[in-house]
Design a protein around this nucleic acid. Structure first.
Lengths: 144, 144
DNA sequence: GTCATTGCAAACCATTTGCATCCGT
DNA sequence: ACGGATGCAAATGGTTTGCAATGAC
């Protein structure tokens, strides 16, 4: 996402492009594949924008989530975490949480289409998104 | 779950059966199908145990979750919610969150077995549980 | 009697909010 | 210049914790 598109998207919604908003988005984009907490994002943004406030980070994350640029995660560690909402993926990827070492893995497959069709047929409920977490044991932790 | 079994399960883990613990479990069992918050459970338990403290409710919920008697939910309303972990179901049911009216619906189907097998094969990750939420629009809200 | 459990109040901590100032447009 | 955005500090609110008293076994 370059600044031009971002600015346009913001403008459509009546928002302004500020250095703080750009910086937060940049950091999340730069750390694609990671799951950053607001505090971590704050610390990273401060490296280039030392004067930014934590509240602004929170407000920006809310905005980015609303705009669908960012995806909010709850990985059961007591913090909210965010990752870039990568438009290139056909479907959302899922997270595997290892109950042994607590590491997070990702699965690119998203085979919930059948299930979502069934839900539409049987429950007359039109699914537009889902959040899925799998709990279990990774290869290393399975061996013990 | 009757008191005898509950007491036995607690004993196995070195815990004692107290009236507070029994009361919390009873309330959750009595409200099977609902999604109660700690505060709501506290209020309901207080009807029969007026002296109970909220901290005890929290501690008991942690315990019941550990023991697998209760299932912790996050339905995106800012509160943690709990429901009875019904042993009678073959699989866990899933929740549908209507983005229109915010109502919660349930699907009994749990067709994630294929997916979990694939995850085991491709990622060598042994799934033992999952949490799934579907977001969309219920029948009424789809009409608009 | 012993040791886990409880109730209370205080502490915690992530997140939100009020408000004066600042700044993008 | 206008109105949205920011930074700061204070407030919020769910959850956890310390501790003395209580109660299950």
């Amino acid at each position: 996402m370059n600044s031009i598109d971002f600015k346009k998207m913001l403008k459509e919604r009546g928002y302004k492009l500020t250095p703080q908003r750009q910086a937060v988005l940049d950091i999340i984009a730069k750390h694609d594949g990671e799951h950053l907490s607001p505090e971590e994002i704050y610390d990273l943004v401060k490296e280039t924008q030392p004067e930014i406030g934590l509240a602004t980070v929170y407000r920006t994350l809310l905005l980015l989530d609303d705009m669908g640029l960012v995806y909010k995660l709850n990985l059961d560690d007591g913090l909210t975490r965010y990752e870039l909402n990568n438009q290139k993926e056909d479907h959302r990827h899922h997270h595997l949480i290892c109950m042994g070492c607590k590491k997070i893995f990702e699965v690119q497959e998203d085979l919930l289409d059948n299930l979502e069709e069934q839900i539409l047929r049987k429950n007359k409920f039109k699914v537009v998104d889902h959040k899925v977490k799998f709990y279990g044991y990774c290869e290393d932790c399975s061996k013990e």
